[in-house]
C-alpha cells in the first residue's frame, strides 16, 4: 500500500480569485441513497421512498443536508490538506439532489485575513448538477497552516 504524501496548502500561497480543484460524485444510485439514509440514521422517507417524495411534490428522493455538508468538507479538505481545519461551512439548499444526478463541488477564494493568530481564508462554495448550476450555494472559512 502506498500512502499519499502529505500535501498542505499554505496561507501565503493562496490568492483571492483562486479556484480550488473541483470534485465530482455520481451518477447517484438508489443504493447510495439507501446507504446514506441508513448510515446517517436519517429515515425521513423523502430520502429513500420514491413514491413518498413524489407525493410531497418533489421530483424524486433527495440527498440530505449532512451529505451535502460532507461533500463541501471533502472538497475543502482535499484542497487545504490534512493540517487545515474547515472552521465554518454555511449553505442554503435550493433544488434537490436526486437519483442519477452527477454532482460537482466547487469553490473560489474570496478573501484572506489573520485573526487571533489564525490564518483564515474565505471562499464561496457551491454544488453544480449535470443540468443546473449552484443547486446549493454558500460560503466557508478555512484555517490554513502558515510558512511563518
Amino acid at each position: 500500500m502506498q500512502l499519499p504524501e502529505i500535501k498542505d496548502t499554505y496561507y501565503e500561497d493562496v490568492e483571492v480569485g483562486d479556484e480550488i480543484p473541483e470534485i465530482s460524485i455520481g451518477p447517484l444510485s438508489h443504493t447510495q441513497f439507501l446507504f446514506i439514509a441508513s448510515s446517517h440514521h436519517d429515515w425521513y422517507p423523502g430520502h429513500h421512498d420514491v413514491e413518498y417524495a413524489r407525493e410531497q411534490g418533489l421530483p424524486d428522493i433527495f440527498m440530505n443536508a449532512t451529505w451535502q455538508h460532507a461533500l463541501f468538507q471533502r472538497v475543502l479538505c482535499a484542497w487545504a490538506g490534512p493540517n487545515a481545519i474547515p472552521r465554518r461551512i454555511k449553505y442554503r439548499m435550493g433544488k434537490p439532489i436526486v437519483r442519477f444526478d452527477i454532482v460537482k463541488a466547487r469553490g473560489v477564494v474570496t478573501g484572506k485575513r489573520i485573526e487571533k493568530d489564525e490564518c483564515l481564508v474565505d471562499l464561496d462554495i457551491w454544488l453544480d448538477k449535470q443540468d443546473v448550476d449552484k443547486v446549493t450555494k454558500g460560503s466557508a472559512t478555512v484555517v490554513l497552516p502558515s510558512k511563518g
Binding site: N64, H69, R87, R88, I89, Y91, R92
Partner: peptide, 11 residues
C-alpha cells in the same frame, strides 16, 4: 412535515 433548508457549521 420537515424540510431542511439552511445549515451553518462551525468546527
Amino acid at each position: 412535515k420537515l424540510l431542511a433548508t439552511d445549515y451553518e457549521v462551525e468546527c
